[in-house]
Design a protein around this nucleic acid. Sequence first.
DNA 1: TGTACATATAAGCATATTATTATATGATAA
DNA 2: TTATCATATAATAATATGCTTATATGTACA
Lengths: 114, 114
Amino acid sequence: MIKQSIEMDQAAAILKLLGDKTRLTMMRILADHDCCVCEFVAMFDTSQPAISQHIRKLKDAGLVKESRRGQWVFYSLNQQYEHFDFVQLLMNALPSQEEKLSELEKQGKRISCE
Amino acid sequence: MIKQSIEMDQAAAILKLLGDKTRLTMMRILADHDCCVCEFVAMFDTSQPAISQHIRKLKDAGLVKESRRGQWVFYSLNQQYEHFDFVQLLMNALPSQEEKLSELEKQGKRISCE
DNA sequence: TGTACATATAAGCATATTATTATATGATAA
DNA sequence: TTATCATATAATAATATGCTTATATGTACA
């Protein structure tokens, strides 16, 4: 088995993207479940355009993929991403962000998208 | 055994630091051997002050530690760093940078510091 | 078709980042 | 003690980043 290793500039680019608390948290959440934009907006203390712009960076880099479901746009980790295993390794080293979602649920904001 | 998990803002801060090709490569090299500043300067295609400033960021964050040996300043990974295991996990996922050092050796620049 | 909701994009601004040049500091050795 | 080498710091300039507000797009539904 050949160990396909990531190159340094690619790794640096990924780490740079993940070196932002909002994006990193989004990714960690997506590692557990798909999420729609409005949930992220409710979850983070920032504006909808800011969220949208963070997501776009992740999408442009290929880390996440989108799927529209009616009015809503859901995002998920892109398992076809060239360095998905590298991303996963990282996500596994981070604490689950379940509370973020349960908070939403408490506020009744989770279901609003489903 | 309690799994001491890193917090998201700390993780993001580390990833941000490592999200720079020069710093990331430095760290990967240090994961294998201590290195002195002049070696880094010879290795990367950038100025001595630029290198010095990158190292400072890593040092300020606690990721590396310095030790002066005569005229030279050597750096090494700080194994006492609170999130050393997180850093190591990352380094292990990256390709060895041995060629960078062997290039130096070829040019006779490696020994210049020892 | 028009209104409402979800999301994306554009433009502008404040701040952060990184490199460069010039200079300072610190150690060694003649 | 002065010259030299190694490294750090300061000042500055160019560029990147991330936010905000305003607006556009896309979908659903009355």
